[in-house]
Simulated assay, not measured.
Amino acid sequence: MSLRNQAHAVSSPTDAASAVNSPYVALQKIKGGERGSLTDAVEEALKEAIVTLALEPGMMIDKMAVCERMGVSRFPVSAALARLEHAGLVEVLPQRGTRVKPIGIDDIRQHLFIRSALEVETVRGVAAMHDEGTLAALAANLEKQRSLAGTGERLAFHVLDLAFHEILLDAVKLPRVKEIVAVSRNALDRARQLLASPERLAHTFDEHERIYNALRAGDADTAAKAMHDHLDQVVAELHRSAKVRPDVFEP
């Protein structure tokens, strides 16, 4: 159901405004299917809403509101939330219900440690290869980043950010390494979205460009340092954000 149709379906202007302003507006109604596929669809939709901060850290999740918005029964919603609990995105509070898990600084530091260890070595390998196809793909990606860096379009920029790192990982042809980085990256996505101010997007573009320039020059040490500094900036900014928004972070 479109937002316009949804607004007509409610009983009053107040109800209409409430529906449009609901955090669950990011969830789309899904068509019926097998129980497993419904659970998958609900899980993916809730995960996307959590990662993009449509459902903010610390927010209690209203299962019935999810059911009504997506047009499903309670079972796939409960099953999807159980999976998301295992993934560390939600948590069950006794006698209260399920909430979006606050962002844990210690968890973030550990995942960034993993990413730094693997991606620093990745850029060393890419620098040694000096593959023109990889460099061309990175250059094309950076041109798109440049056009978005000052606009504040955080979701579109985030897609390009992910693609930049994937180009590097694909170049070294180590699928297991890429898989491990993806797991850690998923855990970091909420934090990256929270930090995605126009200023941070511009800094991220500059950091990516320094990595690219070192790779173009075939300078493995400079590329490695640029990647390390790029990922290290996330930790520094998280600590600053935790002071401003302590409600969305765990100590």
Rank of each mutant, 00 (worst) to 15 (best):
M1L: 10
M1C: 04
S2A: 08
L3S: 10
L3G: 13
N5D: 15
A7T: 10
H8T: 10
S11A: 15
S12M: 01
D15F: 09
A17H: 11
N21V: 05
S22G: 11
Y24H: 05
A26M: 13
R35D: 09
G36P: 02
E44R: 13
E44V: 13
L46R: 02
K47E: 13
K47P: 06
A49D: 02
T52D: 13
L53Y: 09
G58Y: 01
M59C: 15
A65Q: 13
S73Q: 07
R74P: 07
A79M: 14
L84P: 04
V90R: 00
E91F: 01
K101Q: 01
P102G: 07
I103K: 01
I105T: 09
I105S: 06
D107R: 11
H111V: 13
L112I: 12
L112C: 07
F113R: 14
S116R: 13
L118R: 04
E121W: 05
E121S: 08
T122A: 10
A127R: 00
H130K: 04
H130Q: 07
D131N: 14
G133E: 06
L135G: 02
L135K: 03
A139P: 02
N141M: 14
N141E: 12
L142E: 05
K144T: 10
A149Y: 01
A149T: 05
G150L: 00
E153N: 03
R154K: 12
A156I: 07
L160M: 03
D161V: 11
A163C: 11
A163D: 09
E166G: 02
L168I: 02
L169A: 08
V172F: 02
P175S: 06
R176K: 13
R176H: 15
I180Y: 00
V181Q: 00
A187Y: 01
R192Q: 05
R192P: 01
A196K: 06
S197C: 14
L201D: 02
A202T: 07
H203S: 13
H203P: 00
D206Q: 14
I211N: 00
N213A: 08
A214W: 00
R216I: 10
A217C: 12
T222K: 09
K225A: 11
M227N: 05
M227S: 06
M227G: 05
H228I: 13
H228T: 10
H228Q: 14
D229S: 13
L231N: 01
A236W: 14
L238V: 12
A242C: 06
D247C: 09
V248K: 03
